[in-house]
Amino acid sequence: MNSLIATYGRPLSALFLLLTALWAVGLIALPQAVMIERSLWVEERDTSVELRINALYSSLELKRFDLADAKSEARKTQVAEQIATLEAEIKTLEARESAPRKVYTLSNYTRMSSLHFTIFLKTIAYALCVTALSLMVCYPVAYAVAHLAPPTRAALMMLGLIVPYAINELLRVYAWLMILDYQGVVNTLLAWMGLVDFEARTWIPFLESSGSVFVAMVYTYILFMVFPIYNTLETLDHNQIEAGRDLGAPTWRIHQRIVIPHAKPGIAVGCLMTFMLSAGSYSVPQVITRGKAGDWFSQLIYRQFFESFNWNVGAAYSFTLLATCIGFIVLMMRLFKVGIRDIAK
């Protein structure tokens, strides 16, 4: 703090602090707070006044008859006044009835239907599958790029990994859709080999299985796994691998005792990012399955917001997902014995 002032002077330091605070509030605290607040209440309408309103309507009708029957002018104005007050009273009561009341409750969380809860659990399991799958794909790739390939080839491989990321995520997902579709690239190839027949509709319905979502997701989020692992593996002295080999260790033992322990922070970060991204991914399951392979939780949340217009439940679902992800982070950090510091690296 003092060093900040010493380096930049008071006005600039104040500006920095202000920006940091704005960032913290605007990007971290505020959206979450809004979401949590919304998830904690339901709208309730006051139905207790309904009888009163009905009663008032009946008296209003009677007064209208009275008005029609009234002989004298004085009587007329008197009844008219009574009608006016009745109408006013009805208006306020009706306003009270139709205006929703905020009632704070945990019911948004506790009332999740068993179907939705199953989807939630399935989504977590799916996200874990995607994470495990990405790890299995990315660890060898990162290792090969960092330690096996000659430098120019390594650079090319890295470039090959990055280039698809110049394309919009949605387009990449659609590309996979075209590959896995009923009459997509894979099925066309199979048809060409005579294994399936489009006429007889014997194509393989890849898109109706979660597997195709996994594949598309692994592809979509692969960089978030590869790069953290690659970054840690790159700092591993190649001599250590050779030393392990020279001391007689088989390849798996070198990985188990030397490479993986070194790459642990990167593996943890990669798993965290991939898990969070896939657990919260909306576009991939939406585009790939076209609703034919069961919802992911993210799709459910979307529908709470934009189809049921039940924002409170949507908020509660979102927050449940967020809390689960945070729980996962803590678990991973415990499991891999890495601290926040290692991850920040």
Partner: peptide
Amino acid sequence: TALIFQNLALFPL
């Protein structure tokens, strides 16, 4: 054979 590396390459972990 056993090799002692120029930078020793001890396993730091």
